[in-house]
Nucleic acid binder design. Sequence first.
DNA 1: AATTGCTCCAACCGCCAAGGT
DNA 2: CACCTTGGCGGTTGGAGCAAT
Length: 265
Amino acid sequence: MGRSPCCEKAHTNKGAWTKEEDQRLIAYIKAHGEGCWRSLPKAAGLLRCGKSCRLRWINYLRPDLKRGNFTEEEDELIIKLHGLLGNKWSLIAGRLPGRTDNEIKNYWNTHIKRKLLSRGLDPQTHRPLNGGGPFAGPQQQEAPGGATAAKPASSGDEGRSSGASLDEDRFPDLNLDLSISLPCHSPKRSPPSEPLAAATAAAAAEAEATTSTSSYTQPICLCCHLGFPTSDTCGCQTNTPNSQSHVYRYIRPFEEGQQHLNYSS
DNA sequence: AATTGCTCCAACCGCCAAGGT
DNA sequence: CACCTTGGCGGTTGGAGCAAT
């Protein structure tokens, strides 16, 4: 017996979303919250697959999305996190407030890959393309490593934790203390002067946590970790301290409205 | 101005894991 | 314990828009 289709495909729209569809989806989620994606399209009066609704919401309609170009710091953070996590876009996105995994994946494929290649680095292994030494280039910050073995970065998390000590040796600016603890309660390990180190360390801990059975998490403000505690994207002031729905998710009040929506009409 | 080639990104597809029964 | 449903993820693709010719 095969898998049942995620939805009835015979009577669903595909392709670009229209403004009306977006409004229906927004209105429904605003009223009922994110819930059962399978039943949402019918309930919301949308001729769409539940998956499609989810994707549209997460990647485009969510009010907490940050639009616009990636900053240089975001670039470097993505590179470091990719070296640490591989193609775990969702984990990487969890470290970049307001960015989605899809957005980061696209950005990686269109910009950062090229950037690394121009630096003479293999985008997957973060090692020199010329097959030089075991260290990835003259600038340590540009070679976060984690791929000491020539394995596909997308091959999963195995070996990540064991590679951490190597990372630490190779990249002293990275704080890779992987002990399972609460990064937000370790301010001395993540001083504002080292936002990237803090974020990557927290990412390493989270990557570790994803492969372990650790279930206790607490909210952490990425903006503070990134060194932007006073920026308008800092959510730690607005989030309820007890909110644990998404530990690392950047949240902005829904009522702030939608911005930069594109429609194919 | 028209055509061609390229870039970028929204959206789709298939697979997997978690949770429920 | 096996099966099923559902949500989530990463890889891939199609097409709109832009640049070059």
